[in-house]
Amino acid sequence: MKMRALKLKRDWIHGWLLLLPALVFLFAFTHIPAITTLINSFFSTPRGRRSAKFIGLENYDRMVNDPVFWKVLWNNLWFAIGTIPASVGLAIVMALWVNEKLMGRGFVRMAYFTPTVLPLIAVANIWLFFYTPGFGLFDQITGFLFGWPASNYLGNPDTALNAIIVVTVWKEAGFFMIFYLAALQAIPVSLKEAAQIEGAGRWTIFWRITFPLLMPTTLFVCVNAVINSFRLVDHIFILTDGGPDNASALLLFYIYEVAFRFWETAYGATLTVALLALLSLLAIGQFFFFDRKVHYK
């Protein structure tokens, strides 16, 4: 009896030892920072010898009354609406096209995937050149074709966010295409043939067969796209630095500014908690919304 208890205990220790390496990293880089952030959001920012003190919901009160917070949140919403449907739609169209038999298919697939492979900073610099007023690519094209005057897409508060949306769609669509391509190739050809025999045209086949069967992929891609739209900061650093007048600042960019430029770490923590809450809400909502419509094999 005693022997068995001893053995059970040894197994138990073994189990935890095996889990330990993963646990250490998970806690050190995910759980502990998250909990610390939550705690910090209820304290004041420590300054010099003045240590942080508990101030309750004061930071949250400040956040609700912060016009910049509402501005970047609105920007982020607009950014999500602008990027997610466009990049997902484009990804499906590209995947459908590259899935067909066509000349140089491998090359086209690779070309679509290139934006994903390129480093973000390099990509942003290339686009910075495209957008340059006067001699940038866009100005040259619009000037040549329509005789439009030089325009500063990134410096104008009305167009700065849209310019970043275009870059993001360009970058994400190729990445999502890979998932759709894999999903398309998993759909048996006989389904399409059966639908053809029943008299369905290309359009009907897509909407009644292909698209519903791609739903699991669409769910996955959409969750990723939403998270990405709240995670984007690097393009903004290079292209606009959040300006002009916060016109292109997104929530995460604002958090970075508050925490590491103005060193208001407590308020930064508060904003982070808001971001995390928003993201988890969206993820849960998506799963509930989609789950009824998704057919898993």
Binding site: P188, S190, L191, E193, A194, A195, Q196, I197, E198, G199, A200, G201, R208, I209, P212, L213, M215, H295, K297
Partner: peptide, 20 residues
């Protein structure tokens, strides 16, 4: 003519039922 214009039906070896 395409299959839809041949006025016929077909049963596939894999049945090709639409899973969703």
């Amino acid at each position: 003519r395409p299959s839809s214009k041949r006025d016929l039906s077909m049963v596939f070896q894999s049945y090709a039922l639409f899973p969703h």
